[in-house]
Computed example of a mutant assay.
Amino acid sequence: MNQQDNNTIDFGFSQVPLNEKVKKVKSVFDSVADNYDLMNDVMSLGIHRLWKQQTIALSGVRPGMTVLDLAGGTGDLSLAMAKKVGKTGTVVLADINESMLRVGRDRLIDAGVGSQVKFNVANAEALSFPDNHFDVVTMAFGLRNVTHKDQALAEIYRVLKPGGQALILEFSKVHSPLLSPVYDVYSFKILPKMGKLIAKDEASYQYLAESIRMHPDQDTLKQMMLDAGFDRATYMNMTGGIVALHRGWKF
């Protein structure tokens, strides 16, 4: 949680009042929405596409399923899952940030899957969906921005059907003594400068690097999922732990 007291919460390496974090995160993603996909490709050298492909492959999404893409932003996962659920299934692309959701909606409509996707402005900590509603819930690179992560995980568990699976794809902790210092230099020296050059926004990508370091590590997040009610939770590291895919099941 990284919450220092009852009134403040981390925003990168800074502490801000609890009731201001959502507004500050919204400001970050309002700023980067139009260049978000381009920056993802540039800053990960395109590897984020492989991380997401692996997430989809392990999701088990099939025709006719109902899927929630939470904090789905510009719709990478929603697009892939809409093709898998087909005309008989439904994907809900949900995000708290309307700027990101607008980019995602336009993208999916242009891709011809708009009829299979519903769009929802949603706070992960207080979802409006009924209990036991979704076969699969995904959340890619969104959990670290949530104020109360334990509450969001409990909500994901609540809206999953019995037998359903949640997949949380998120930056995590690098354990390699060789990769770790290189990754630190890249994160804090190069990434913000890339943000300044490409997205004209250095501060948002400085926050990105800081928010990754403040996010719970692999084992901590696994235990948080179990504490939220998941009957089973596992994780797999990708690219040396730069990213981890956590999976939780509701039986």
Rank of each mutant, 00 (worst) to 15 (best):
V182F: 14
A154R: 14
D219F: 11
D5F: 07
V146G: 00
F119H: 04
P17E: 10
K193C: 10
G240E: 10
S187K: 05
D227W: 07
F188Y: 10
N40D: 05
F171M: 07
G89N: 03
K26N: 12
N97H: 04
I212T: 03
F188H: 02
S204W: 01
D231C: 08
M238F: 03
F29G: 01
R49H: 14
P181H: 04
A57K: 11
V174F: 04
W51T: 03
S59G: 11
F13P: 09
Q165P: 10
E210N: 06
S176D: 08
L127I: 09
E98D: 12
T234H: 13
R232E: 15
L77W: 06
L45K: 00
G104E: 02
Q53N: 15
A228S: 07
P192I: 03
L50I: 13
I198D: 07
Q3M: 14
Q218C: 07
A244C: 02
L45Y: 10
T147Y: 00
S14P: 00
E155S: 06
V117P: 05
N237W: 09
P63A: 05
R62S: 14
D76G: 00
M139A: 12
K87E: 13
T88M: 13
S176W: 00
D95G: 00
I9T: 09
M225I: 01
L58A: 15
S99E: 14
M236I: 00
K196F: 15
V42C: 06
Q4W: 11
N237D: 15
L45G: 15
K222C: 09
K26M: 14
S115E: 12
Q54T: 04
A80M: 13
P216L: 02
T74K: 08
E20V: 06
A209T: 08
I56N: 10
Q151M: 13
A80G: 09
A166L: 05
L77K: 06
V91I: 12
R232F: 15
F230H: 05
L143W: 01
D135M: 01
H48P: 00
S172A: 06
V146S: 05
A33G: 01
D231T: 10
Y235D: 04
A122W: 03
A166F: 02
L70P: 03
L143R: 02
L68R: 02
R102T: 14
G195D: 06
P17K: 08
K200D: 11
D37G: 08
S115D: 15
V182I: 15
R105G: 07
I47M: 12
G142R: 02
L58S: 12
G142N: 07
T66Q: 15
E210F: 07
R62V: 14
N7P: 00
W249E: 11
T74M: 09
M65H: 03
Q4T: 09
N6H: 12
E125K: 07
L50V: 12
Q218A: 12
D69P: 03
E210Q: 13
Q223K: 15
K193T: 13
Q165C: 11
K26W: 13
E20F: 01
K149R: 11
A111E: 14
G12N: 02
L208Y: 04
H246K: 01
V159C: 00
Q206Y: 00
S128H: 13
G112C: 01
T220L: 12
E202Q: 15
N97K: 03
T88S: 11
P177G: 00
K26P: 11
S128I: 13
